[in-house]
Amino acid sequence: MLFINTRPQDRAKPLTMALHQQSIDVIELPLLELIARPLSSDLTGLYRQLQSAKVIVVVSPTAVDVGMKYLNQLQISLADLAHVKWIAVGQKTAESLIKYGVESLVPDVETSEGMLSLSALKSLDTRTNVAFWRGEGGRQFMMDTLISQGHKVLNFILYDRHCPEQSKQVIETIKQQLQQSPSYKMVVSSEASWLNWIELIQNNRGILNKADYWVLGERLFQLLLNHQKQNKLSFKITKLADLKIDSITQQIAVAQG
């Protein structure tokens, strides 16, 4: 079995090691790189409104680190935010918050839909301020849903998401490997990752059709399904509830029979 590990470079190794222990061939190809934005006047203005928020949604460990760095720079203490409920998209983000002494709520399903199902969001009074610590393009569906429910979103875009230059440099070699392989598995964790993948392989039908894409959540599943139908492709799609290493290795055991 050939597996493409698309996790960010700083988080790819534990999964690669676990897969190697199961004698799985792994190609590491990060599809997203997160680069912090500078503390602009617009961001500073949002931080000055942060105490009005009842909830802060944090979407990644990078959002935690950048968000806390700017809190410190602006001399806003966590004590000033003691009334706030923190929501983390997943366990890794929650663990990053714990390093700063912040406990958070984590959905059972680590997606926008999973977070929206939390009682802390479902029970909000109308016109509540909800802050998002996120990257460019992330969690738009979740913010739009809350706005449609009458809430005000404080939109902290703390970093940009790019396709890593290194991945662009090695993609031709990887294409050759995939053309020679009968099939491969690949985790797709976000819409941005998927779009970067499509751009990298330039919509190569032969490579696309060899894949079994393991996607995070129903919305991403539907995104790939629509792409498949619109382009008359025949790749496989498998839906994952989370991106934990144990969950991925269990799915591999299922795939291997």
Rank of each mutant, 00 (worst) to 15 (best):
R205A: 08
K122P: 03
V254E: 04
I35Q: 13
G135M: 11
S148E: 10
V57F: 15
K54N: 06
S117C: 10
K69D: 12
W197C: 07
L39D: 04
F235M: 10
Q149I: 00
I237V: 12
W86R: 04
I252N: 00
V102F: 11
L34E: 09
A241F: 12
K210M: 11
G217Q: 11
F3E: 04
D10Q: 15
L81K: 02
S117V: 09
Q51L: 04
S123R: 06
E103P: 00
T173F: 09
E218N: 02
N226S: 10
K13S: 01
L116W: 11
L220Q: 05
S41F: 09
R7W: 11
V188R: 03
R37P: 07
V58A: 03
T145R: 05
L71R: 05
K175A: 06
V89F: 15
D10F: 13
N155Q: 07
Q230Y: 11
E95T: 09
I245W: 14
I198L: 15
S119W: 05
L233P: 00
R134D: 10
Q177Y: 01
K168S: 15
R11W: 10
N203W: 15
E110Q: 12
L74N: 03
E165D: 14
S52N: 03
K92T: 13
K99L: 15
I248D: 00
G67N: 11
A120P: 01
V26R: 03
Q179T: 00
M143S: 05
A53K: 00
L19K: 05
T128P: 01
G45Y: 07
I76V: 07
T128G: 06
W214R: 07
D25M: 11
A211N: 01
S104A: 15
I201R: 01
K69F: 12
F3L: 08
L46R: 03
L32G: 04
Y184V: 07
L81C: 08
P164S: 14
L223H: 09
D80C: 11
V26Y: 05
Q202L: 12
D242N: 14
A255P: 01
T126F: 01
L71M: 12
F221R: 08
W133R: 08
A241R: 06
Y213M: 11
P38T: 10
Q250Y: 13
